[in-house]
Design a protein around this nucleic acid. Structure first.
Lengths: 239, 239
DNA sequence: CCTCCCTCTTGGTATATACCATGTGGTGTA
DNA sequence: TACACCACATGGTATATACCAAGAGGGAGG
């Protein structure tokens, strides 16, 4: 084998996970244990686990150990909750803050607000089975969601829109980007600093074409396999 | 400072890059050099550089050294070449293989081919200023591109379609995914194994709605900031 | 019973050292 | 001049060791 030793050890462990079908959250051998069974130093065993972590096969929770990870959640644009349920897991949300305030320039432009109109801004951490998956920042025009901030905000926002404000989301647009997650968000998402993420900048519209939601969602790239279908016109000339 | 030492060293180097405006491809101090100037071991200096590499600030080219990286290329769906030029860099392509053969099932379905129809399949590595950025695998129905494989295939394929086959791309659709890049592709893209990537599965259509190109493009997530605009209908009920 | 505390194990960080493969550049040679 | 070769510095890998912070679990003491 021409590969470095830690790569072959990672391959062995990977096979053990997929082949012997170790279930999610199964405890893996510790670094010290692996170094002994494979006859390598601890740093080498550590590199193998680090590779598997980067690939999304395992996650590490000091000082408890290293565990088999859940499969990635395959997302589409639309309802976070629906996608999580479709993956056979339990969606939830934790409200970080919620307030009424002047919109950011991009939110004002997206929601087509007048100079003095405010927004209801929400920052929420979203989970699948208590595993943090994404950070949402959502903006609604305050005018169409009076009293929103007094409601329980740990469930589906679209459901609240429909049930209490007679606002029916009809379609949505999104810009997707691959980013490096900032340190504060890394802490919230429980990933190490400078992890890669997917930034989704969303707009939701009513059937009449009014934009009633502007959102910036940061997903963990290691937990979400993101799929977005886009259809775009091609310029007349191009490379 | 509560952060680990290597994080503060990375921050210092990051400031040096952005603050003193070190140009792309500037040689950074070596690991051994850094370990001496910061008074740490080489492994600690190494971790600092590894962090900057993950963030996309530097790239490493053994045994030459560590260099300041180019800024990410902001992509849209459409012409690879156009986006690269827009970023002020020089696009190019290297043909890895090209052949006529039966389509893969997904290519057959996308291109709506009969049972015996073949495709022209191309595998190309795409560059910005000699820096590998993406791996394309492209399929055309052989029937509409006779003699394609005898042409020079290191430039714009859409240009060839227009100029030689009277086929005019009118619009395109894409599915975007965040993935872990396989080892062979990692080698081609000159990134370490298990790096994160963006998988773009594209379809190109004529004005008449005929699909004339099916492609799977793997982009380096550390070099490309990917933007895709999507507009999708929202289901009647949902979370 | 409950609570405090202590120990054990874990991954995270750090040091010091060593050897390898490989582009680069200089040097010696034909 | 041209070419072959070799030393050098680089990042990549690997060993051995050490200490730290923090959750888990058990035991002592109330």
């Amino acid at each position: 084998m021409g590969s470095p030793r830690y790569v072959t050890i990672a391959a062995e462990l990977r096979d053990r996970i997929t082949g012997e079908k170790l279930g999610p959250h199964t405890l893996m051998p510790s670094e010290r244990e692996l170094s002994e069974t494979f006859g390598v130093s601890r740093m080498t065993a550590r590199q193998a686990l680090a590779l598997l972590e980067k690939e999304g096969y395992v996650y590490r929770r000091p000082p408890r150990g290293t565990f088999v990870a859940e499969p990635r959640v395959p997302f589409h644009i639309g309802s976070f909750s629906d996608e999580i349920i479709l993956a056979g897991r339990r969606p939830s949300a934790q409200l970080i803050w919620a307030e009424e305030r002047p919109p950011t320039p991009s939110a004002r432009e997206a929601l087509d607000l007048a100079g003095d109109e405010t927004v209801h801004a929400l920052h929420r951490l979203r989970f699948a089975d208590d595993e943090p998956i994404a950070l949402e920042t959502t903006y609604f025009p305050s005018a169409i969601t009076p009293g929103l901030l007094e409601r329980p905000l740990t469930g589906s926002l679209w459901h609240i829109l429909r049930a209490h404000y007679r606002v029916v989301p009809a379609d949505a647009s999104a810009v997707i980007e691959s980013i490096v997650i900032d340190d504060a968000s890394c802490a919230r998402l429980q990933v190490r600093s400078a992890s890669s993420g997917i930034l989704l900048t969303r707009r939701t519209y009513t059937a009449e074409g009014r934009c009633i939601e502007f959102a910036r969602d940061v997903y963990r790239a290691d937990r979400a396999s993101f799929k977005v279908e886009a259809r775009i016109p091609v310029p007349v000339e191009g490379g």
